[in-house]
Design a protein around this nucleic acid. Structure first.
Lengths: 205, 205
DNA sequence: TTTTATATCCCTTTAAAACAGGATATTTTG
DNA sequence: CAAAATATCCTGTTTTAAAGGGATATAAAA
């Protein structure tokens, strides 16, 4: 009875690749795969694997959100983030949301196996590049913004004015203005243009 | 003697996935793989496969440029673009540079096989989604902007006002305003916020 | 060569954002 | 519980952007 591994990735070729890398490993049992967040959650209602390899980009929901949801419902399942992007913000968010590891898609079989085994034992695994990225100094961290501020930010990014955002959220235009002011301060942005650019760079919109 | 297929992709898992998908196909011979453009070119000096599956994102050079280079030197080699991105501009550029097909990474084995066989016979293959994307009117393609407009756009994204941009570029604020108006029209943006978001989404800033 | 695209410049009015400087109620958390 | 964070709302003023309407010179393409 090996480690039961499940995969969520919207790319069939990546699923096949991982299956191919793991199929001859004795310590690994293939639990199955999903190509989106909802079928992953549906699968988990039936059975829980030991480790989930989870892509960050899924069609219906971000892997970052899915990670949080899965860990809330099934805390005993360990999650390894899987991505082509070696971005500090992604890695940090996955870890924050309960992931036990992060592996890049250009990882070798040995690296993948190492990650699965370490994570299954309850420890944390970061691939070399991911660990480096987390430690890098040119760490232009995204500012911490509240849920409400994020809502407002997204609506502004869609082109809405303060009044429109206010109507949409059933709050006063003054409140929207305040959130906006706080966003400018938090991002150290001079105006809306730089605010949206910074937010986009940090993948917040 | 089947169709000799070579793969260039920087993701080991994708290479494994494709190899796994193709290994039991009788009409296919595995010619090898490369994880970057230069080792792909080095391989081609030794031997030429019939079909190259080529990722658009490579570490040293874009697949789009590599495609052009390969077709110039080895016109008899057929190339299939491979990408997670179903973006019209990418597909078009690959075709323009001599690719005979475009397949998304979430393609099934059947689709991949079909693509390889059709392309090897000298015809062109586009996956369903790619073909749709090429024909779609709600073309999620970046609008064509002039060099000057791009300059202005970048400065706006940095948080500069019209007056500041004008000073920087040694032109009148009125001119900056005109460029700005044209940018809003070209991007079909309601205001600066949506303009910057769209520009960021199209990797223009 | 004539059209088209690009880049430049101007005016006016209205709408929106930025800035300043408050206040209060409700959560969250140490 | 008390402090901190969050979310809500207010009155102003100043600055900037958006929308509408123009115009001219030049370079590139048909």
């Amino acid at each position: 009875m090996g480690i039961k591994v499940f995969i969520v990735d919207d790319h069939y070729m990546v699923i096949e690749g991982i299956r191919s890398l793991l199929q001859n490993e004795k310590g690994i049992d293939w639990a199955g795969h999903a190509t989106n967040a909802s079928s992953c959650l549906a699968f988990l209602q039936q059975q829980q694997p030991d480790v989930i390899l989870m892509d960050i980009n899924l069609p219906d929901k971000s892997g970052i959100d899915l990670c949080k949801e899965v860990k809330e419902r099934y805390p005993s399942v360990f999650i390894i983030g899987l991505s082509t992007f070696n971005q500090q913000s992604f890695i940090q968010k996955m870890i924050d949301n309960g992931a036990s590891g992060y592996v890049l898609k250009n990882a070798t079989q040995a690296e993948l196996m190492e990650a699965i085994e370490i994570v299954a034992s309850g420890k944390t695994f970061l691939s070399n590049e991911a660990a480096l990225s987390l430690r890098s100094k040119d760490n232009n961290d995204a500012p911490v913004i509240t849920r409400r501020e994020k809502e407002v930010l997204e609506l502004i990014a869609e082109g809405m004015t303060n009044n429109e955002v206010a109507q949409k959220l059933f709050i006063s235009p003054s409140t929207v203005d305040t959130h906006r002011k706080n966003l400018l301060v938090k991002f150290d942005a001079k105006n809306t243009a730089s605010l949206i650019r910074l937010a986009a760079q940090h993948q917040l919109i």
